Computed example of a mutant assay.
Amino acid sequence: MIGLLGLMTGWFPRAFRLPAGARRARGVSSFPLTLALLLLVAPSSDAATARVSLDRNTLPVGETATLTLTVEGTTPRTQPSFNGGAGLRITAAGRSTSVSLVNGRQTMEIALTYTVEALREGDFTLPGVEIQSDAGPLRTRPVAVKVVRGGATPVGEGQASLRLVPSKTSCFVGELVPLEIQLYVEEGRLQQGPQLQGEGFNFGKIGDQPTQTRTRVGNRTLNVVTFRTVATPVKTGKLSLGPIWLQMEVPVPGSRQDFFGFRQSHSIRVTADALPLEVQPLPPGAPADFSGAIGQFTLDYNAGPTRLAVGDPITLKVTLTGSGPIESLTLPSLDGWQGFKFYPPSSKTELADPMETSGSKRFEQVVVPQSPEIRQLPPFTWSYFDPE
């Protein structure tokens, strides 16, 4: 996508065109600077709400997931239907009610559950639905579902299988690729967590709090334990993501419980083969201030105070928000700012997910104008590459 993101003062024309996916965030302030104040009003804690969630957003063809529609603060009059299109079959499964009392305030939640069956490969979106309730109509947000090719199912009682599910099969060098590691097992105990290999990749930490759901595979009901991490390719070409393995203890097939309820068990190593991932180079023509950030970001920029004498400090406050390598984001060089003295910047990172792939990073940079001739701050730009 080609474009310039102008912050605070609109769009900025340039004499060159950025390559596909390259974007530049630019902020401008001047003396005197008038800042618009936004009044954010939080919704009442008593307001009725409706939200949807999936116990897993990636599932193979032929398997099922559980969709939960939660209504809080009111009672739905009917159970709405979800349209899964040609790729998903969605059927109502049940309804439950929970009531909690905290500090004398009673809260009621009604959970409507649905079974989502994957029919064919592809990326699908469940549209939001409107719920008629005693508090009036409520609407949910869309939910994304990725269906991948089905694999072989575990064989034999107590055995297990492992599946590696990348979020995409083609990416750019340096791009974060979220991964799911799905363990299918009837029963067992993990002895050593997933060990992921792959030449040409840097891997993030594999989360130590996997999610656990149940699914139907053929005529069997299995537990699905899902671990999540990210892979970042550091070179281009057709790379192999994996193999991956873990160690677990499972019951010996055919064994029976003894008097104390225990079964004979043995240790097994569960593996999954490597998958191909095509890694492309970044397109040419990146802006000079591009420092390697790849993802989707927004920039918020302001400076103050705006009335000062020579030698008084000005604090630049920059916030980068979005999805990508949040922790490694850096400010661009201000070497082009003539007539200023600079102090080292400080930063604070707030991550929005356990895989550390989204959130915000706030910077503060103190600059000091050295001449009374300076009447405004130079333009501030920060460039990134959007792989989408």
Rank of each mutant, 00 (worst) to 15 (best):
F82L: 03
V310T: 15
I244C: 14
L241Y: 14
Q191P: 00
S346D: 15
E356N: 07
L239V: 04
F227S: 00
L138R: 08
E364P: 00
M8W: 06
E121L: 12
R149A: 14
D335V: 06
P251S: 01
Q338I: 04
T115A: 12
N103C: 00
A160P: 02
P76W: 07
M248P: 05
L37G: 01
R307G: 02
S96I: 04
R149N: 09
G62S: 10
A118E: 09
T236W: 10
D258N: 15
V28K: 06
G156P: 09
P369G: 01
T115M: 03
L377T: 00
T271Q: 08
L4E: 08
T68P: 00
D258T: 08
G311A: 09
Q197E: 15
D123N: 09
V279L: 11
P243C: 06
V71Q: 07
G10K: 05
L164C: 01
T66H: 01
Q132C: 07
I374D: 02
P13L: 07
I326K: 15
L5P: 00
N103E: 08
S240T: 13
L316I: 04
S81D: 11
F16S: 15
F297S: 05
V177W: 11
Y184S: 15
R105Q: 13
F342T: 06
R263V: 03
T97Q: 13
L190G: 03
S291R: 15
T97K: 15
T125Q: 06
A118S: 10
S346I: 15
R17N: 12
W245L: 04
S45F: 05
T213N: 13
S383L: 07
L299W: 06
G218V: 15
T74I: 08
G85W: 00
L37S: 11
I314V: 10
K348A: 11
L138N: 12
F363D: 05
Y184L: 12
R214G: 13
M1C: 11
F16H: 11
R23C: 04
T357L: 14
A50K: 10
P19R: 03
D123L: 05
N219M: 10
P251G: 07
S161K: 09
S30I: 03
R189C: 00
P43M: 11
G156N: 04
L40A: 10
T78I: 12
R26T: 04
L320V: 08
L377A: 00
V279M: 11
L275C: 08
R120H: 02
T298I: 01
D273Y: 02
S29D: 03
D273N: 14
L33N: 12
